Computed example of a mutant assay.
Amino acid sequence: MKKYYIALLLLTCFAGAYAQEAEKTEEVAFQAGEQITYKLKYGIFSAAETTIKVENSEQKFFGKPALRIHAVANTLGTFNLLFKVRNQYQTFIDPHTLLPYYYSEERKEGGYKHADKVTFDHTTGTISANSGKYPYSGNVFDFLSAYYFARNVDVSGLKINDKLDMRYFLEDGIHTLTITYLGKEQVKCGLGTFNCLKFNPTIIPGRIFRKNSKLYLWITDDKNRIPVKAHVELIVGSLVMDLTQASGLKYALNPVKK
C-alpha cells in the first residue's frame, strides 16, 4: 500500500464534509471532553482504529486560549504484520473561530517515518512547516481542524449535487478537496442507525484507488454533525470507516428507533 494511506483516508473521511466558503454556525457543535473512535475495516477484517479527543489546552497561541484535538491511528491484528501503522496527530484551534494555530504529526507507516510541525499565522497569512513557508489567504486548515470546523458549517441551504470546496495544508502545500452533496439517507454504524447527510468527496486515482473509485461519507443530520461511516473503493476490495464509540458529546446522539 502507498505510504500515507492512513493519513490520506483520514483526511478525506474527516475533512471531506463541507466547504470553508460556507458560513459557520454561531453555536459550536462540540466541547472539551469529547472522545470518538472509528474502526477501519477491509472486507470482514478490522484493519485499523482511530481515536480523537478534544480537551482544553493550557498553552496559548498569539496570547489567545486554544482547544487541543489529538488523534491516534493504529493498525490492528494481522495488519500489523502486513503494514504496521502508528500515527499521532494534534491540532490547536481557536475555540471561537475554530481556525488552527498549530498542527503536528508523527507518522510511522511500515518502514516509512515522517514528522511535521505546522504553524498558521493568520495575521501575516503565512503557514510555516518543516518543508518551508507558504503564503495563504482565506481559511486553510490541517485535516483535524478541517474536520471540526466542518461540523459547524451551516448546511441548511445545500441542494442535491451542490459542489463545495475546502482548502487544507498537507506536508508541502495547500490543496483543494471538492465535495458533492448527495442528499439525506439513513445509515447503520456501530452505535446504531442514524439519519444522515450523504457526501461524495473526490479522490485521486493511484496505487490505492481506481480511476472510477468512489468515496461516500455519512454525517449525522443533527447538532453533533459527526461522521458515522465512510466507504471507499480500492483497486482491490474496499475500506469502511465506522463510528464505534462516542462520549463527552455536547448533544446526545439520537439513533433511529426501530
Rank of each mutant, 00 (worst) to 15 (best):
T78R: 15
F83P: 05
K84H: 11
K84P: 08
K84C: 06
R86K: 09
N87W: 01
Q88L: 01
Q88V: 15
Q88T: 15
Q88Y: 00
I93D: 02
I93R: 02
D94H: 09
T97Y: 04
L98R: 12
L98A: 13
L99N: 02
P100T: 05
Y101V: 10
Y101S: 01
Y101C: 09
Y101L: 04
Y102M: 11
E106K: 10
R107S: 04
K108S: 12
K108V: 08
E109V: 02
G111A: 00
K113G: 11
H114G: 03
H114M: 14
H114V: 02
H114N: 15
A115S: 15
A115L: 12
K117W: 08
T119G: 13
D121K: 08
H122A: 06
H122N: 09
H122T: 12
T123R: 13
T124I: 06
G125W: 05
G125C: 07
T126N: 05
T126E: 11
T126H: 12
S128M: 04
A129T: 07
S131K: 13
S131N: 12
Y134N: 04
Y136F: 11
S137E: 10
G138A: 04
G138M: 05
G138S: 07
N139I: 03
N139G: 01
N139Y: 05
V140N: 01
F141D: 00
F141S: 00
D142I: 01
F143T: 03
F143P: 02
S145V: 03
A146I: 01
Y147Q: 07
R151M: 13
N152K: 10
V153K: 08
V155I: 13
V155T: 15
S156L: 11
G157D: 05
G157F: 08
G157I: 02
L158M: 13
K159Q: 07
K159L: 06
K159G: 05
I160Y: 06
I160V: 15
N161H: 14
N161S: 14
K163M: 12
L164M: 15
L164Y: 04
L164N: 13
L164R: 09
R167M: 08
R167F: 06
R167H: 13
R167P: 14
